[in-house]
């Protein structure tokens, strides 16, 4: 009994902090999303968002860009993780450090780097101009391509490291057995490694997708005001037009989308640990 009191006392500050500063804000957001101008309960904010073609366009852009970003991250992340898992430990450490470095760098700094690379006269437009593909004033800024490039750079290290965790657990002897029985390297990769790594690839992709649909800084700086995503629409409603109830309703819709994507993730990662 006294042990239980000790445990509660140790975790108490944390539980209190999360209850007051994490759960309660979410509850307040849910409450505001259904409060009308007269103070009564209403669904008007949801109806407004879901019936306006403009906002539906914003949702659609957010979803298809995120799908594209997630697929690229998984397609590049898996081979990268496999290489990292099969090189020598020293080389693996270096690769991990080189991949963690951008992961831990502030997203504003990384996005700034892309603004320089993709903007007018930047490395990529300049090279394309020199090669004769585009005009002198060509820029990739404020395009969907810029959003995808910037977001893949943000999420690829994250996806690769979470897939690496799964690939590292695959028994090497299974691969050797397949090779001994005459399977080629690529056949082994396809029929042994890939199926075993699939739960990890899916879990990493789902997490990358939720981070992508809710990201704000990179899409708003690289995409600009003409290519809004759900997060920038929430930001505008909350800080520019000051329609808090509308901002709350949009956040609830985003939250529902994220939870839908997270449900299979929790099932996948639960199976992996248990």
């Amino acid at each position: 009994m006294r042990d239980r009191i000790e445990d509660i006392a140790l975790a108490g500050p944390g539980i209190l902090l999360l209850a007051l500063a994490f759960v309660l804000p979410l509850v307040e957001m849910l409450r505001l999303s259904i409060v009308g101008a007269d103070g009564g309960v209403t669904a008007e904010h949801f109806v407004r968002f879901l019936s306006d073609p403009y906002y539906l366009g914003v949702v659609w852009r957010t979803i298809y860009l995120s799908l594209l970003i997630t697929i690229i991250c998984a397609a590049v992340g898996f081979p990268l993780a496999y290489v990292m898992a099969r090189v020598s430990p020293q080389l693996r450490l270096w690769l991990i450090v080189l991949i963690i470095l951008p992961l831990m760098t502030s997203v504003v700094v990384r996005t700034f780097g892309w603004m320089v690379v993709l903007g007018r006269g930047g490395l990529i437009p300049f090279s394309l101009w020199k090669l004769g593909f585009v005009g002198r004033n060509f820029t990739l800024m404020h395009t969907e391509a810029a959003i995808v490039i910037g977001m893949v750079q943000v999420l690829l290290p994250f996806t690769a490291l979470s897939i690496l965790g799964v690939v590292m657990k695959i028994d090497r002897r299974l691969e050797e057995a397949a090779r001994t029985m005459g399977a080629s390297f690529l056949a082994t990769l396809r029929s042994v490694v890939l199926p075993l790594a699939m739960p990890g690839i899916l879990a990493g992709s789902l997490l990358a997708f939720t981070l992508s649909v809710s990201s704000f800084v990179t899409p708003s700086l690289l995409g600009g005001v003409r290519l809004p995503v759900v997060a920038s629409s929430i930001y505008d409603a909350a800080t520019k037009t000051l329609e808090w109830n509308f901002a709350a309703a949009q956040s609830v819709i985003l939250l529902i989308g994220v939870l839908l994507a997270l449900t299979p993730y929790i099932r996948l990662s639960g199976r992996r640990h248990g």
């Binding site: 804000p25 957001m29 809710s214 990201s215 704000f216 929430i234 956040s251 985003l254």
Partner: peptide, 24 residues
Amino acid sequence: ILAGLFLSPLILPSIIFAIGLLML
């Protein structure tokens, strides 16, 4: 459940948390 609660700020998008905190 407690572990889930403590780790949930990791997966809940920070924009949702940020706006809730601002409003509250």
